[in-house]
Amino acid sequence: MNAVIKPAPAAAIAPRFPALPLGGLAGTSFKHEHLAAILAEGAQRGFFEVHAENYMGAGGPPHRALEAIRRDHPLSLHGVCMSIGGERPLDLAHLKRFKNLVERYEPALVSEHLAWSTHENTYFNDLLPLPYTVATLGRVCDHIDEVQEAICRPLLLENPSTYVAFRESTMSETDFIRAIVRRTGCGLLLDINNVFVSATNHGFAAREYLADFPLSHVGEIHLAGHAEQADDEGYPLLIDSHDGPVANAVWKLYEIVIAQCGPIPTLVEWDSNIPDWPILKAEAAAAQAILDRCHTIVEDRHAAA
């Protein structure tokens, strides 16, 4: 008689990678052109973030590179194609691939966007904005619940960069995000460059937006560069391009947030016009310096208490 071998409970399965600490660290987007330079430096302080959709194949060079990075560094897995805000049901095949990546690489953080990017069988290259209504809120929360149930962990939801607003919106973006957190228990990824881009494009104050943002639920911060243009009427128009260094105004907003919230893990995104590794590493080092100053201040306050 053949014995029946039951799979071990999830908690009993040994992790494939070390559970490296992430608190108070700055990181960068992982780009394959930087692999040799990163490996030559060996294990270093910081973490890397990758777009999930770049690793949804079964194997090959992309996975070998990511495995080499993950052995010595924490990982943040960032989805860009889930279409959380889409009207149609989530793509279950895509969600399964996303779940498999979470299980395969055991990332410290997992995130997606408050946006939509699909319509029927059409897939867009952009993360498109949503009307902030009760109906949209219900749909977004249902989708987040579905993702969180699949990956068995909280999802971090990223605030969008926007270029248009909807007349039918019945609540502010910050109220909408707050309601999502309350209903789903998800965390938040605060993209400070997105805040600055949207504030400039729509004519509101970025600091007021941040003052109304549910900062206590932020588990990761994004910083990135943007492109400066003008609209048809000559007003400033910023594009969330991720193709250059972080702007001074965004650094200032970041310092305000860190001073208020403490050293939250911070990722510098740079996705096009990719520079040599030392330049991207220097951007992360600038963020790390701010995080370290904050950590020192917090420790001094505790010592004096």
Rank of each mutant, 00 (worst) to 15 (best):
D292Q: 13
P21T: 12
A282E: 11
T170V: 04
E49T: 01
A249S: 10
G185P: 02
G219T: 04
W270Q: 04
N125D: 13
G59H: 12
G57I: 02
R153P: 03
I290V: 15
G219S: 08
T118P: 00
G57H: 07
V250M: 11
H222Y: 05
Y55S: 11
R64W: 00
S241N: 12
S241T: 13
L155E: 00
V4A: 04
W251T: 09
F176C: 07
G262C: 11
D271E: 10
M1W: 05
E208Y: 04
P7D: 09
E228D: 13
G187F: 01
E112N: 08
R139F: 00
S169C: 07
P129E: 09
P9M: 03
H51E: 04
K96D: 15
H119T: 03
P15E: 10
L128G: 03
H222I: 09
G42I: 01
F166L: 10
Q44K: 10
V4K: 03
P107I: 02
I256G: 11
G234C: 08
I151G: 03
M171C: 14
F48Q: 05
K31R: 15
V257E: 08
E208Q: 14
V195I: 12
S76P: 09
D292G: 07
I239A: 12
G138F: 01
H222E: 12
H302S: 12
D126P: 08
